[in-house]
Structures are given as structure tokens and as C-alpha cells.
């Protein structure tokens, strides 16, 4: 986004797809490719770290040896964590359904997502 809130156009960016700043991949929130969102049930979790081992995108957030949530900025919703979880504490939910839940104010999906990101899920990733 540019300063005026309008999304940048072809005249606003360097030619040839050049990137002129370092570490910009950190800002590229690939989580917005996601169709299914892993929803973590904190109560059922045994903190065995199987999901952390298997996650191909390093999106399982861990603090002091315990799972604390999922990095929705980068999780692409592959579902491997849910498949491998021995406690069955990760549920893959359609983003569109969670959107609808949020719109209705039910809030179940939104709050179940974990504490990691204030902005997540269906919002288009910022550039």
C-alpha cells in the first residue's frame, strides 16, 4: 500500500521486478494463499511437538517447549499438522466458512485461531 492507502500500480514500482530492499520476503505474507485454516484446540494439545517437526513452513509457534499457536502469516493450510497430530487437536476449517462465522459475529473461528496474529486469515497480505 502507498501512503494514500491506494494499492501501488505499475508506475509505482521498480522495473523488471527488482527488489531494492533487503529482507523483504519477511513482509510477503504467503499465508494468504491458504484455503483451509488449521484451528488449534489448546485444551486437547499435549505439546508433543509432532506438528512442529512436520510443518514444512515453520509455522508452528513454540515458546519454552510448548506450542503456543500457529503463524497464520505464513501457514499455507497444507494440513500436515492436522494429519499428524496424535491428539487430533488441529481441525482444518475452510477460510470462507470462518469468514462467514466472523461476519455473523459468532467469533468461534476467529478466536480459536491462536494468539499469534492480530491480522490473519482472509485479509489480503500487505505488501
Amino acid at each position: 500500500m502507498s501512503a494514500n492507502g491506494k494499492e501501488k500500480g505499475w508506475k509505482d514500482v521498480p522495473i523488471g521486478g527488482l527488489i531494492l530492499e533487503a529482507g523483504s520476503s519477511d513482509k510477503y505474507e504467503t499465508g494468504d494463499w491458504r484455503t483451509y485454516r488449521p484451528v488449534w484446540d489448546q485444551e486437547k494439545c499435549r505439546h508433543c511437538m509432532i506438528c512442529w517437526i512436520y510443518c514444512p513452513d515453520s509455522s508452528i509457534l513454540v515458546r519454552e517447549g510448548r506450542m503456543v499457536g500457529i503463524d497464520y502469516k505464513h501457514c499455507k493450510g497444507c494440513g500436515i499438522c492436522a494429519h499428524e497430530c496424535p491428539a487430533k487437536c488441529i481441525d482444518m476449517r475452510l477460510e470462507t466458512e470462518l469468514e462467514a462465522d466472523r461476519a455473523e459475529g459468532a467469533g468461534a473461528g476467529a478466536s480459536a485461531g491462536g494468539a499469534c496474529c492480530a491480522k490473519s486469515g482472509g485479509e489480503a497480505g500487505g505488501k
Partner: peptide
């Protein structure tokens, strides 16, 4: 002194703009 990345991935969000350029 002014590093630049050439040939980075450019998906549906920017490729069209670069082709327009």
C-alpha cells in the same frame, strides 16, 4: 552499496504490473 534482488518470484499480485511496464 545499493543491493538489489533480480529475478524474484512475482505472482498474480505483481506480475501483471511488471509486464505492463
Amino acid at each position: 552499496d545499493r543491493p538489489a534482488t533480480f529475478g524474484a518470484l512475482d505472482f498474480a499480485d505483481w506480475y501483471f504490473e511488471h509486464r505492463r511496464q
